[in-house]
């Protein structure tokens, strides 16, 4: 059956690697984001890598008016609809401390914007009785830390939303994968201090495909972050509050 993949936040390097991976499988790829010139470049690349079709679509997590055109376009597609959500933003915590209004944008980009979009999109998937939603959360959502707790809180909110969505979509034959990446070598982490065990976007994309094929619920990528976060979550709050990790 024909597979269509809608990719939200398609300009990020993780999204691009994933778009290429599904393109090589011959899917129809829809690249949604703000930088249309860049998205068209990625669409060309996906077509040359084997995508049956690839198109650039305008999507802005902060502008719900952009959502309808995407839904309308995808409604025209035959076969299965799938969506992968890579949107999110991570201002430095110090910038947020200086300007608390940045919280609204961070939460919209990383949680409520994509959630609101999915709320409108998922009924189409339910009608067709299947498909996969991949949602990128973060290990930062597993515990609030002094360094980025607003971003972490937004990603935690998104992870909880995805958990509920999985509960719902499973009944219709669909599936939701929650992804918690550790450090990935992207523009977001480039040049930041304290990075270690940094994964390539391509290795993350491979993990996402495998998780989709095997209908995994929650994955950490690279896998060892599951164990790192298990330890970090196990630290009693009374100790954790004094730590800076």
């Amino acid at each position: 059956m024909k597979q269509s993949w809608l990719i939200l936040g398609a300009s990020s390097s993780m999204a691009r690697a994933f778009a290429r991976a599904v393109a090589e499988r011959g899917a129809d790829v829809f690249l949604a984001g703000r930088d249309m010139d860049d998205l068209r470049r990625i669409a060309n690349d996906c077509r040359l890598r084997g995508a049956a079709n690839a198109e650039a679509l305008k999507f802005d997590a902060r502008k719900p008016k952009t959502f309808d055109a995407i839904n309308d376009r995808l409604a025209e597609q035959d076969g299965m609809l799938n969506v992968a959500v890579f949107v999110g933003s991570m201002p430095e915590q110090t910038a947020i401390d200086a300007d608390p209004a940045l919280i609204d944008g961070t939460v919209t980009d990383s949680f409520t914007g994509p959630a609101r979009f999915l709320q409108g999109f998922v009924p189409m998937m339910e009608e067709r009785g299947g498909g996969t939603v991949i949602g990128i959360s973060s290990v930062a959502g597993d515990r609030g830390r002094i360094g980025n707790y607003v971003y972490g809180a937004a990603k935690a909110g998104f992870a909880t939303y995805l958990s509920g969505l999985r509960n719902r979509l499973t009944r219709a034959g669909g599936h939701v994968v929650t992804v918690k990446p550790g450090f990935v070598d992207t523009a977001m982490t480039w040049g930041l201090p304290g990075m270690f065990l940094v994964a390539s976007p391509e290795s993350v994309a491979r993990d996402l495909l495998r998780a989709t094929d095997k209908r995994r619920d929650v994955i950490y990528t690279p896998f060892f972050w599951r164990w790192i976060m298990l330890i970090i979550r196990a630290i009693p709050e009374r100790m954790f509050k004094k730590m800076s990790i």
Binding site: S11, S12, R16, D35, D37, D38, R41, T186, A187, W190
Partner: peptide, 8 residues
């Protein structure tokens, strides 16, 4: 620097 887009 490692830009990921032409604009960057």
């Amino acid at each position: 620097a490692r830009p990921e887009k032409i604009a960057a």
